[in-house]
């Protein structure tokens, strides 16, 4: 826990102080990580959000129609995507896809002495390996969440239009009207917190792997579990604080 806290401090140090010492992060490396963490994760997040939107709309339309409130399906989909499901589902995808990959990659570097070699060359592993991944994750976490929100809305629209045969225009108007900017921002704030937790946990666990290939495997599982728990707990806490 102590070491995890120190990692966070060190990341902030290199982010804030680094550029003044001409030791800022390398732009090319940040972009490489953005592509790996974010862009390559887009299809998976989009698909998840789409199916979540579909399911949500189907469930909602049955219950709401029974209650005579079938008109509120778009409101339901857009608000729950933005406030809750968009950030949460996206971060689960990021944990599974990118968090585990980061842990496995850093863990392998640790057991094959690469991290030690960096330290001996007076290169700080946190500055060199963690900071680019951190920046990439902090940018791509919220960005993927925005994409997911819209794919969720598309999922809802498919049910609305193709299954129930209702109008597209009314779906768009209703879903945009019901969700406020506050809903969007609170979701984005959540997704930034989740991104922070995921990237710091997966880097921390990866950098501290012990015991060969088997250790890397165990660490990867551990990092996924820890990140999921951290995201779920912080999600509940943030929801309690904000709403």
């Amino acid at each position: 826990m102590n070491a995890y806290f120190r990692l966070n401090v060190e990341i902030l140090f290199w982010l804030i102080i680094g550029p003044f010492q001409r030791q800022g992060p390398k732009v090319a490396e940040v972009f490489r990580q953005i592509v790996r963490i974010g862009v390559e994760g887009l299809p998976m997040s989009a698909m998840t959000a789409l199916t979540v939107g579909l399911t949500l709309a189907m469930q909602a339309s049955r219950k709401l129609t029974e209650l005579g409130a079938g008109m509120y399906v778009p409101d339901m989909v857009s608000v729950s995507m933005m406030r809750e499901l968009g950030p949460l589902m996206t971060s689960i995808i990021i944990i599974g896809r990118s968090g585990s990959a980061v842990t496995a990659e850093l863990g392998t570097m640790r057991v094959s002495e690469e991290i030690e070699a960096l330290r001996v060359m007076a290169i700080k592993p946190v500055k060199f390996l963690v900071v680019p991944r951190f920046i990439a994750m902090m940018i791509m976490g919220p960005l993927l969440t925005v994409f997911s929100n819209y794919f969720g809305l598309v999922g809802g629209w498919i049910v609305w239009k193709l299954i129930q045969g209702k109008g597209t225009a009314i779906y768009i108007t209703r879903s945009l009207e019901s969700a406020t900017a506050g809903d969007l921002y609170s979701g984005l704030f959540k997704s930034a917190v989740f991104a922070w937790l995921v990237v710091t946990i997966s880097c921390h666990v990866g950098l501290n792997v012990k015991g060969g290939a088997e250790g890397v495997g165990r660490a990867t599982t551990r990092s996924v579990v820890l990140a999921l728990v951290a995201v779920f707990i912080s999600n509940a806490t943030l929801t309690y604080l904000f709403f």
Binding site: E105, M109, S112, E113, A117, L118, M121, A122, I123
Partner: peptide, 26 residues
């Protein structure tokens, strides 16, 4: 300079980048 028993080259970089790493960083 240190030559590790396993080499400890960074797998994600090319050979040229591995050698230039200490030069660029230090």
């Amino acid at each position: 300079g240190m030559l590790f028993q396993s080499g400890a080259l960074l797998q994600s970089l090319t050979i040229g980048e591995n050698i230039s790493l200490p030069l660029l960083e230090n």
